[in-house]
Amino acid sequence: MYSFKNDYSEGAHPQILKALMESNLVQEDGYGEDQYTLKAIELIKEKVGRTDVDVHLLTGGTQTNLTAISAFLRPHEAAISASTGHILGHETGAIEATGHKVLSVDCKDGKLTPDGVKAVLEGHPDEHMVKPKLVYISNSTEIGSIYKKEELKKLGGFCRENNLILYMDGARLGSALCSDENDLQLNDLPELVDAFYIGGTKNGALLGEALVICRDSLKADFRYHMKQKGAMLAKGRLLGIQFFELFRDNLFFDLAEHANRMAGMLREALIQAKVQFLTHSPSNQIFPIFPNSLIAELEKKYSFHVWEKVDADYSSIRLVTSWATKEEAVEGFIEELKKWM
């Protein structure tokens, strides 16, 4: 059984494991004040092209989202998310558990627009309702789409005009930036969004996300929020070492490019087989629509998520490739597909 279920089924890239092992008996300060974390933070600042940002390393995406969003918002303020957004449907109400409502916007392609956000603002006009304050987006999105630079410029401009915080979930940021359709660079982001994180868990690290806070008003006391939310790892070196390895050369992008290439092989074979897709997703997640009978056959050899029922006879599945996906596994899936098609 080979898994196309997610991009964190494997452990970590050997280069990261080697660095963790070689540094294992070196004594270091805790809570992110070790030499490895400090070096990683400086390296990330260099990569994003801004020395005035704050960088914090946390262990996972949900933890990063709930810690950041709850820190950025006052008690009566709410977040706005696409209806497919991770904080809305896949984080067990983590944001709501911190006292902040998540307001949903239906988006066909999983991407928020100024018009969608404007409609939420108009629907919450006064103090009898929560106050929309933070706009949550992810790149790539939950359905594999990516934001183009002009889209972020327009959304960011609208947020600034309306005194909103624009926050980007970057769990799969590597895949988005390495997509053939992408026109963004990592160092564009501090000018376009107020805060974002760089996902390591889904791109070759054992665990870890690097939160980058760009807006000065959001920076104060953030380590207090981390500690209170259980997000300050005593052995912070484990995160620092991994992010240093990911960014000291091109490893972060090499791994994302591999994941995208494997997805591209699958996508091209499906297109040639005239398979329809639920959504346009130029990243490492693809959503083909198959007859339910074919899905049952494929499930005998491969694991994946059945994403959405299309009608009585057809469903969309989600295929996710990773930094470690084997080319022969992709070729095997394609051959199996051809046999049953």
Rank of each mutant, 00 (worst) to 15 (best):
Q272N: 14
I286H: 00
L233R: 10
F277C: 02
M265T: 08
L270A: 10
A312P: 07
P282M: 04
S315R: 00
R248I: 14
A259M: 01
E308M: 12
K229Y: 14
E299G: 07
E299F: 00
Y302K: 07
A263N: 06
A273N: 06
K301E: 15
Q272H: 05
E245M: 11
Q242N: 07
L246A: 03
L233A: 08
K235W: 15
K300M: 08
L238Y: 14
D311G: 05
P291K: 10
R237H: 10
N250L: 04
L238R: 09
R261G: 09
L278G: 09
S281R: 03
Y314F: 10
L294I: 13
S316W: 02
K301T: 11
E308I: 11
L298V: 09
L255T: 08
E299D: 10
F252T: 00
Q228V: 09
G236F: 02
I271H: 11
I289N: 01
H280N: 13
L270Q: 08
F287G: 02
H258I: 03
S316R: 02
Q285S: 11
L251E: 01
Q228R: 13
H280M: 09
N250G: 09
R237S: 10
P282N: 03
Q272R: 12
N260V: 09
L255I: 05
D313H: 15
D249H: 07
Y314R: 15
E297S: 15
S316M: 04
K300E: 15
A231H: 02
F304N: 03
E257G: 13
D249M: 07
N284V: 04
K227A: 14
S293A: 12
L255D: 02
A312D: 11
F290M: 06
M265C: 12
F247H: 06
Q276W: 04
R261W: 15
S281W: 00
P282D: 04
M262I: 08
A234R: 14
F252M: 00
K300L: 11
I295T: 04
G236R: 01
Y314S: 12
M265I: 14
N260P: 03
L251N: 01
A234Y: 15
K235Y: 15
K309V: 02
L255Q: 06
R267T: 04
F252G: 01
M232S: 13
D311R: 05
M262P: 09
L266I: 00
G236T: 04
A273I: 06
G264Q: 07
